[in-house]
Simulated assay, not measured.
Amino acid sequence: MIGDLVGSRTASDRRGVHRQLTRVLDAVATELPPLDPAVVVAGDELQLSYPRLGDALQAAFLIRLRLAPEIDVRFGIGWGTVEVLDSRSGAQDGPAWWQARSAIETVEARAQHPGTRNARFCYRAGPDGEGPDEPAVEAALICRDQLMGSLSTRSMRILGGLVAGRSKTEIARTEQISTSAVSQRVQRDGLDVIVAASAMLREVG
């Protein structure tokens, strides 16, 4: 899995961005332990690997959700084998990384077009089509991206609360609005759909 922070090079507080990214990566790794610790490389790119596609998709979703709205991030996720080139440095190569690179390049290209400007996730199966069905996963990701791309800052926070398992009443108290107002946003913005789609994507092998 390769993540790329959107517009981070022009951020006024790059140290603050890095601190927030590190906090989120540590929190998500506690919930969904990766195969290896996250690596943040030059250009504000992050790299992670998971044994299951569903875990990688969920980790990427949580990272994006918890960095929003201050920091935006795109993800490319690839399926395949990994070769450790150097056990001391942890340098890796192999089809999984090649496919992840192809995926991040694809999602970046999509985001340049008005019709797919909300694209944030892309999945590529193995070089010979190995792994979960690419078109099916991609269809779900594109639709979820479109829903999330239209959310206001408050709706994104409410979505984060729902994903964390908080009740609408608890969320309303935090947002200082009525429970009815939360329910209206959930229905209007399709937040329950996003939660359900993400839960289903997590079950992908």
Rank of each mutant, 00 (worst) to 15 (best):
T169R: 15
E31Y: 09
G126H: 08
P51H: 07
A140R: 13
D4N: 02
E170I: 00
S150R: 15
D36W: 07
D192Y: 02
V195N: 13
A38G: 01
L57T: 03
C122Y: 09
V195Y: 13
V17Q: 01
R14K: 12
H18P: 02
T179K: 13
Q184D: 14
A164K: 03
G7W: 10
E70T: 05
Q112E: 10
Q47T: 11
I177V: 15
M200E: 15
W79C: 01
R166G: 06
P69S: 03
V17H: 05
F61L: 02
Q184T: 15
T169C: 03
E45F: 14
L21T: 00
A27T: 15
A91S: 13
D4I: 00
R15E: 09
A119K: 01
M200G: 04
H113M: 07
E203G: 01
P132G: 04
Q47S: 11
I194F: 06
T116V: 03
T22G: 06
R52E: 07
G43Q: 00
V204S: 06
R19G: 12
W97T: 03
V41T: 14
V28K: 11
G3P: 07
D145C: 02
D192P: 11
I63S: 10
I142Y: 05
G129H: 01
G205P: 15
R188L: 08
D145M: 04
L48H: 01
T169H: 10
E70D: 12
T174S: 12
G90A: 13
G80P: 09
R120P: 02
R23F: 10
Q184R: 15
G126C: 09
V163A: 13
S155W: 00
Q112L: 12
G160L: 00
R144V: 04
W79H: 10
D55Y: 00
D133K: 04
G76E: 02
V41Y: 06
P127K: 07
S198L: 05
P127L: 09
F121E: 02
E31N: 05
G16S: 10
A11W: 01
T10K: 09
T169G: 12
L57Y: 13
L191H: 03
R166V: 04
V28F: 02
I158F: 01
T10W: 05
L147I: 12
V107R: 02
H18G: 06
